[in-house]
Amino acid sequence: MKIGIMSFAHLHAEAYIQNLRAIPDVELLGIADDDAARGEHFAQAFNARYFDSYAALLSAKPDAVLVCCENSKHRALVEMAADARVNVLCEKPLATTLTDARAIIEACERARVKLMTAFPMRFSTPLVEVKARLDANEFGRVYAFNATNQGEAPLQQRAWFVNKDLAGGGAVMDHTVHLADVLRWYLQSEVVEVYAQTNRILYAKEIQDTRVETGGLLMLTFANGVFATIDCSWSKPPYYPTWGGLTFEMIGERGVVLVDAFKQNLTLYRHDLKRAAWNSWASDANQAMVEDFVAAIRDDRPPRVTGYDGLRALEITLAAYESAERGEPVRL
């Protein structure tokens, strides 16, 4: 199976290219990028073929592409790929507007190609174990979640993350979708109400785009009555032992379950770093996600996370912006 990568705007592309190469029978066709310097840089860094346009990559007949461009450009690239009858794994968030997200889903349905939203937490082994125990009803009725998906501000990695036109927002757009999706997956219930408060105190000077929030707290209410908070803030400093993390506390009839998805680390102290660093030995969730995408194409079945899941998570995220703007809960 031949797979290409469309754009290295998103830093996850650097992980995915290695995930693809680790899968037998997958051939990394090459990469294209509308930023030629960036594309050539990563093509060289990863010893991959560089295509000087997306059209050139698509005309080389890949079976699938990974779309890793800036959030607001997802639609254009997914539509190109779908028109060429190429399966798509699209980076999260699926899009920055509901119109774009729906267009992405429709384009892939029309072309009868697979569409997967990149929600790797569905493949995180600690989260998968909790899901299995939840489905086995080990915790009794579940009442509430207290969740965090905090990180360092990505302005060091890629400047577009802090540009609203390209990213669709700040910390809320960057981090909400992961937990929104995990909670939908766990509860098999949809969010009916979103309340959010945001601010931009962290990095107020460093981030030029004043429309970009850096702190955010959300409260979600599900149709089944479960309530959950999500802290999506860019509140980890750049010298934190790791990039950030995803945690939640699940309150059920039998008690409390604490989940820290990225806790499987060594603490590493190195003379050259002059700070503690967390060195992960966890199972690679990205690897499992990319493998599921490949298997979905091979076996002609839906991927474990779909475009629809991406749409619902985006809906929750956009409702959070509306709530923060209006200062009251928003019904979905």
Binding site: A144, Y195, Q197, N199, M219, I251, G255
Partner: peptide, 15 residues
Amino acid sequence: LDFGLAILKHKNGAL
């Protein structure tokens, strides 16, 4: 069990 979650918005914008 009792469980509660609260989001406070402070006057100065802190959460």
